[in-house]
Nucleic acid binder design. Sequence first.
DNA 1: ACTAAAATATACCGATCGGTATAAAATAAA
DNA 2: TTTATTTTATACCGATCGGTATATTTTAGT
Lengths: 195, 195
Amino acid sequence: MTKAERTRHFIVEKAAPIINRKGMAGTSINDIVEATSLTKGSVYGNFESKDEICLEAFDYLVKRVGADMSQAMSRGTTSREKLDALFSYYISNVTGENNYGCPIMNFGTEADDTNPAVKVKVNKAIVNTQSVFAKIIRAGIESGEFKKTVDADAFAIKAFAMIEGGMWIARLQGSPKQLLLIIDVLKQEINDYCQ
Amino acid sequence: MTKAERTRHFIVEKAAPIINRKGMAGTSINDIVEATSLTKGSVYGNFESKDEICLEAFDYLVKRVGADMSQAMSRGTTSREKLDALFSYYISNVTGENNYGCPIMNFGTEADDTNPAVKVKVNKAIVNTQSVFAKIIRAGIESGEFKKTVDADAFAIKAFAMIEGGMWIARLQGSPKQLLLIIDVLKQEINDYCQ
DNA sequence: ACTAAAATATACCGATCGGTATAAAATAAA
DNA sequence: TTTATTTTATACCGATCGGTATATTTTAGT
């Protein structure tokens, strides 16, 4: 890893949480300069534009969320336990201190009408996340844990929308109350899936 | 209504869809000047700051959405029909041409970490919208249309999260497919509420 | 240690940002 | 219609925006 590669990564690491919090338009190069204690020349020596930083910041955040989700899932053995672990991760993601919301939600809402490149990345992240849910359900069906009649894709779409909506509300209200209710509903539904 | 009041309203009317689409940070005063064909001096003769315009724009958008929801609901007689009409409104909101997403979602996501005043307004809008759902359910229970065991508040929270999540996904994907699935799930659930 | 190459810092660019002082024009009360 | 008041347009403010040319420093291969 060359110096430049390390610096690039360092800049992304510092910039990502700021962009996730303040938005792409709301974050200035100066914000990034201050956060990294570098200079503008140094930042632009490693990146071509602010847009490139935003794109890599989104990739970085999504990768980190994905890693956290995998780690959470690995704590469960059965499909149901894996789903429970995922739910717990989402809840901790809202109740934890240094968290600024789901990057897929934050970048997606801003990029929707303004940044096609980011929009494409967000769409891929949505599909990936939903397929994580669907794969767990399918594994549970194959192992005999869940009924064969369960629609894995439909559950994934529904659960993802509910959780994203619930996290968004929880962050805005400064309370996990509604997210907890939504997670309870999902757990009850998974309970009904069991045979 | 004085000239100033009319102009204020005119500015908000023109600025609101732009801010809803590009975000508060992403919209410049010049954008508003161009959209209104007024001058900067005229805009600042009627508003103290860009922030004030954003706040009024949000109020305007929420009021309009509320009116559209009321109009949709009035097309139904039973509680179930009213809910169906609401769902249809949300779907048309996504499939329609000149639409740029739910203002509660757009303003909420941006304001969450950057604009406390807007955040307060967004929270009130969330509570109001959820109470619309809850009230319909409660009316249905009182009229004997729905079972007494139905939890109106829980349904409102769940349905709102699902719909907001579903609309967000639909706009990002450029397809109402997942929202339609989510609405179907809700309709099925309401069907189960009937006795 | 020497040196070519890579990375960083300084200083600056024009454009645009939100906002304002002031003059010109339009409104509204008399 | 006159006149005081309100509203609008012009021209400008300093600050900050994203971005760059260039000089200086640091890195890394020999």
